[in-house]
Simulated assay, not measured.
Amino acid sequence: MSDPILYTNPMSRGRIARWMLEETGSHYTTQIVPFGPVMKDAEYRSINPMGKVPALQHNDHIITETAAIIAYLADVFPDAKLAPTADERAKYYRWLFFGAGPVEAAVSNHASGFNPTEEQGRFIGYGSYETVMDVLDQALSETPYITGDRFTAADVYVGAQVNFGLGFNTIEKRPSFIAYSQRLLERPALQRATALDDADMAKMKA
């Protein structure tokens, strides 16, 4: 089995994939893809036709979309115990895709100044930003991690959304969000990933 190759940029959602790789404890390499022409050229589009990062190459497989990368890594590195148990599976998939769907869309739109009217909310998948925040708040008020008492790969994605939102004021500073974020920020894997990404960002700006 070859080591994963992460195509990333330290100013992107690639930071989430790096965090997940650090959680697995696996050996991996990174390829920094600059924004602009390089990310949109034919060579990189052969990896990800969307011209976006992150992307993961592992053995003969290419995986794109951050949530898919996280779920894939949880499955192929089972010793890290980041994939769900049988009892956790329903909540795991529910909240992983809630993070990749409603949370991602609602927060991005809200930060961009678009908040659907009540009528628009009937056909927009997440309904409203307020509803998404309330649902996430309720979930994180009930258990320390998104699927229950144990950290899983779903927390990497949902947690990254919460951490980013709190840091950039794109989500409300509710007590459950702050407590959840503080638990995650104590994780050594996240601290390592952050240090590596920050170092790469400094090199790019030098």
Score class of each variant (00 low, 15 high):
residue 53 V to F: 06
residue 169 N to C: 02
residue 120 Q to H: 08
residue 94 R to M: 13
residue 156 V to S: 00
residue 52 K to W: 08
residue 127 G to P: 11
residue 36 G to T: 06
residue 176 S to N: 12
residue 49 P to C: 02
residue 30 T to H: 03
residue 130 E to G: 08
residue 63 I to K: 05
residue 194 T to R: 12
residue 28 Y to I: 09
residue 96 L to R: 05
residue 91 K to N: 13
residue 3 D to H: 07
residue 30 T to F: 00
residue 168 F to P: 00
residue 159 G to V: 02
residue 141 S to M: 08
residue 199 A to P: 06
residue 57 Q to S: 15
residue 87 D to F: 06
residue 156 V to E: 00
residue 96 L to N: 01
residue 43 E to R: 12
residue 146 I to P: 09
residue 202 A to K: 15
residue 183 R to G: 07
residue 58 H to S: 09
residue 18 R to T: 10
residue 140 L to R: 07
residue 103 V to Q: 12
residue 60 D to L: 04
residue 82 L to E: 02
residue 168 F to C: 00
residue 127 G to V: 01
residue 152 T to S: 12
residue 172 E to K: 15
residue 83 A to W: 05
residue 196 L to E: 13
residue 199 A to C: 02
residue 93 Y to E: 12
residue 4 P to V: 04
residue 51 G to Y: 10
residue 196 L to Q: 15
residue 115 N to H: 07
residue 194 T to Q: 12
residue 149 D to H: 07
residue 183 R to S: 11
residue 17 A to G: 10
residue 51 G to W: 09
residue 142 E to I: 11
residue 14 G to L: 05
residue 113 G to W: 12
residue 16 I to A: 14
residue 96 L to P: 00
residue 43 E to M: 07
residue 18 R to K: 13
residue 177 F to I: 01
residue 167 G to D: 14
residue 64 T to A: 08
residue 24 T to S: 04
residue 44 Y to D: 07
residue 41 D to V: 09
residue 63 I to G: 04
residue 191 Q to A: 07
residue 152 T to C: 06
residue 199 A to N: 07
residue 173 K to Y: 00
residue 10 P to L: 04
residue 163 N to G: 12
residue 34 P to D: 06
residue 204 M to Y: 05
residue 68 A to K: 10
residue 81 K to T: 15
residue 70 I to C: 03
residue 167 G to K: 14
residue 30 T to P: 00
residue 16 I to E: 12
residue 86 A to I: 14
residue 112 S to N: 15
residue 193 A to V: 04
residue 188 P to Q: 02
residue 11 M to Y: 12
residue 79 D to I: 05
residue 142 E to R: 14
residue 151 F to K: 00
residue 160 A to W: 00
residue 206 A to P: 10
residue 139 A to W: 01
residue 24 T to I: 02
residue 145 Y to E: 06
residue 40 K to L: 05
residue 101 G to L: 05
residue 51 G to K: 09
residue 201 M to H: 14
residue 191 Q to L: 09
residue 11 M to G: 09
residue 118 E to A: 14
residue 71 A to I: 03
residue 40 K to A: 02
residue 47 I to T: 14
residue 141 S to L: 08
residue 38 V to S: 09
residue 58 H to G: 08
residue 115 N to V: 10
residue 135 V to L: 13
residue 83 A to Q: 11
residue 146 I to C: 03
residue 111 A to G: 11
residue 148 G to N: 03
residue 193 A to E: 05
residue 41 D to M: 09
residue 138 Q to M: 12
residue 76 V to H: 03
residue 26 S to W: 08
residue 39 M to S: 15
residue 80 A to K: 08
residue 181 S to H: 04
residue 67 A to C: 11
residue 155 D to I: 08
residue 80 A to L: 11
residue 124 I to A: 11
residue 167 G to M: 10
residue 69 I to K: 03
residue 7 Y to F: 10
residue 163 N to L: 15
